[in-house]
Amino acid sequence: MDFVLKLVAFIFTVSIAQSKEIVRDSRSFKLNGNIIYECVDLYKQPSLSHPLLQNHQIQLEPSFSISKPKNQVKNGSKSKNIIECLNGTVPILKNTKEYVASARYWEEKIFKPHTAESHGSHIAGVRSEGQGPYHGVSATLSVHDLNISGDQASYANIYVGSGVNNEVNFIQTGWMVNPSLFGDGRTWSYGYWKGANGKGCYNTICPGFIQVSKTDHLSGPLPHFPGELDRAMSISIQQDKKTGNWWTSDIRRNEPDVHIGYWPKELFDLLKNSADIVGVLGEVQASPSGISPPMGNGHRPTEEDIGSAHVEEVQIIDSNFVVQGSGKYKFENILDSDKCYGLIDGKDSILFKYGGPGGNSCGI
């Protein structure tokens, strides 16, 4: 009888444990009313349903290691610590109807390298073109909170791209304030890609981006710690030499870097082997009424580094997959509306400072 009782108790305990495990495996993380992440089996994530990825083999980690800037201790990204899926699962965005509709709306307004800017967009930043081919770019972007209306957006990003005639492939990642897209006024990290046949999208709104990290997701609210004066994110887009996939990574402050995931090379026809342009930008999208939002930290840059939105520690992966400092390249400055925004060169590790208040006379 004792044996039977012990056996029943054991089976009951195992059943409870399995039940808890099932609950944990299916757990979700709600970041706000529009944004919900669910932990999904790494090998069953929706992106693998993309027609171009039917035979894709998931790459669990890149073959390269990121070369950290000398003063990385000062500026690296911090862990978001919002989501932590179990081993073997990854956080995948659950696409609500509201999120999908907003993403499609903003997709048409995003700045596209090699093409004319979309109506109502303004940019301030730098790019390197004609000195490639390139295999990636990394930078540290100062991060800021902005008060903007629900029909406006303000970004800062790094990007790689290639274009022929009117066709363009590109990838960008950075931070964004976009109340309409994300459902709140917080500053969010994001990614965007456009590949073969003009197909692409924000984050994982459509199949394409392969999530690998179980903790760091492509898009989420960026933390802001009390008393923090120098808020920044260090990020990279880098092509893997062995596979051709384009990885994005969080370059951490005092911790190992986190490789979030990648855009498979199969998604692109012009970025399969390399990129012919890389850059770093501040960007805004005006409201339909024509009023442009603030860019950067909302103020014009000054000669003093303190108090200006800025970009520093820019590195480029050259034609030989070697990481080069920004001093090896000649950058073209881009500023399309000096009425509302400013752009000035920085000193030492700061490549440039940018930003401005926006307004209703910024131009088309």
Rank of each mutant, 00 (worst) to 15 (best):
H122Q: 07
I237F: 09
D257G: 11
G185P: 00
S121R: 10
C201I: 04
C201P: 01
G132R: 00
V212D: 09
F170A: 09
L52Y: 14
I205K: 02
I16N: 02
W193V: 00
V40F: 03
W193T: 00
S67D: 15
C206F: 00
A309D: 14
K112V: 08
N34A: 12
L146A: 07
A196Y: 01
I210T: 14
Y354V: 04
I58D: 11
G208I: 06
W106E: 08
Q72K: 08
S121F: 08
C201L: 01
D25K: 10
I306E: 15
M1K: 03
Q324L: 08
Q131N: 07
L222H: 05
I235C: 04
E61M: 07
V40M: 02
W263N: 08
V258L: 03
R104Q: 09
L42N: 04
Y105Q: 09
E117F: 09
I83N: 03
R252S: 09
G191N: 07
T248R: 06
H50W: 00
F12A: 14
V322N: 13
E129L: 07
V280F: 00
C362V: 04
G136H: 04
S77D: 05
V278I: 14
Y99C: 02
Q324M: 15
G183H: 04
K241H: 14
D41L: 12
S308M: 13
Y190I: 08
Y159P: 07
L52W: 11
S118T: 13
F111P: 03
T89S: 05
V311P: 10
G358K: 03
E228H: 01
S154Y: 11
P51M: 02
S274R: 04
V280D: 09
Y329H: 06
Q45D: 06
V164T: 14
G200I: 09
A124L: 10
Q211W: 08
W175F: 09
Y43P: 00
K242E: 15
F331V: 13
E84C: 10
G220V: 03
N55Q: 13
K112N: 02
V258N: 05
P179A: 01
E228L: 05
Y43A: 03
F10L: 11
I317V: 15
I66A: 07
F209V: 06
V322E: 15
G261Q: 07
